[in-house]
């Protein structure tokens, strides 16, 4: 159910520059405000988007992490990692 929290985070970062900055500075603190499962939180912190997709997250929204250079990802690394490549 809490896949919603992953989606909500990924949706908000596109609209909220302050949130993006905060996420770059202290990701754990930001993620603590979202009702994420432990698996989701750890996958987000690791930039493990393939696991997040397997947990039910939608790539269309997840890709915002790569677009905005968050959680250690950029466009290129996101596109590789969503396919389980390093």
């Amino acid at each position: 159910m809490s896949t919603y929290a992953v989606h909500s985070l990924c949706w908000r970062i596109r609209k909220d520059e302050a949130l993006r900055e905060e996420l770059r500075g202290d990701p754990r603190r930001v993620l603590a405000r979202f009702r994420l499962s432990d698996a989701e939180r750890e996958a987000l912190l690791a930039g493990d988007v393939a696991t997040l997709e397997r947990l039910g997250a939608h790539g269309y929204l997840l890709a915002n992490l790569g677009r905005f250079g968050l959680l250690g990802l950029d466009r290129e690394s996101y596109a590789r990692r969503i396919k389980g490549l390093r």
């Binding site: 997709e53 939608h58 790539g59 269309y60 929204l61 790569g66 596109a79 969503i82 396919k83 389980g84």
Partner: peptide, 8 residues
């Protein structure tokens, strides 16, 4: 943005 997009 998903795993099915072709290649990388």
């Amino acid at each position: 943005g998903g795993s099915k997009a072709p290649g990388t």
